[in-house]
Design a protein around this nucleic acid. Sequence first.
DNA 1: GTTGAAAGGATGGACCT
DNA 2: AGGTCCATCCTTTCAAC
Lengths: 171, 171
Amino acid sequence: MNGRQTGPNFSMSQDTQTPARLDDVDRKILSLLQRDATLSLDDIAAQVGASKTPVWNRIRKLREAGVIRGQVALLDPDSLGLDACFFVLIRTSEHDPDWAAKFLSAVRARPEVIEAHRLAGDIDYILKVRVRNARAYDRFYQALISEVKIHNVTALLSMEELKATTALPLE
Amino acid sequence: MNGRQTGPNFSMSQDTQTPARLDDVDRKILSLLQRDATLSLDDIAAQVGASKTPVWNRIRKLREAGVIRGQVALLDPDSLGLDACFFVLIRTSEHDPDWAAKFLSAVRARPEVIEAHRLAGDIDYILKVRVRNARAYDRFYQALISEVKIHNVTALLSMEELKATTALPLE
DNA sequence: GTTGAAAGGATGGACCT
DNA sequence: AGGTCCATCCTTTCAAC
């Protein structure tokens, strides 16, 4: 056991989570796993300069604390024929909770919506949408505006994905 | 075997990849793995209604064909103290290859840039940037415009992540 | 934190349908 | 082609130290 602080960890505050206390070894482990989760415990232990058991205990704790959310396979959009990617900027005139709930469930229900954010400023929402082609985007767009009333939409078409990563910056 | 076209698969055309030919079992496997890559072969085999060996062979082929790009751990931004997420809309006046190369390497080098696309239309680029707070965003912004000349920047601040998935729509 | 032992899963072969 | 069985290796998992 090292001389660090003990006591309850990973607690919540009301709105924003208090960040987990991580040391350099934790960060190194996370950095490796968020790039390649197929690494074996032996590999990770070797690369962080520790042995299997402590590394395994750290990973378990990071999972329990929700720092590690899950482990997924990343698929190639082009291989799946998903050649078109749009960023959709949405302005709405409605701001009542009913509208927001309907919009939210519409967005969550559609698998072509990869990402959705509520924004500050004059644009209310941004969506990232992956579809087969422009026609498929139009179908999506028509379906969306028939479900929820939207004041103004701007679609930005991606010509080229310069960078795309799921790895978060660890300081 | 179904009545689809045969012939060489997974070839490239100059710009866009020919999509891999996938049957329903492949899609089911991919759908499971892109949601949870910790599933055992036995589990997957049971859920797709096949047995281990053919499932394992399919997964191997999907990996070799590049349909499965890799396997990663997904981390929770809030647990890491990355509370701020910005979408950055960039207009540039420069359109020579030199500028583009410099912009590309700047964007690739910065870990806070999670995603970067070149766009069609009057906005040239969009970035998705994850940082600790607004001050960290400003540091990023100042560093970026000191590296590459940028005509106009609009930053959209995310107030709430309504949806975020790495899972692609499989029809 | 280290070692090592037990259990379970992944890989690949042999053979059958 | 896919299915079953199996044998081996590799990891994960969790003891005991």
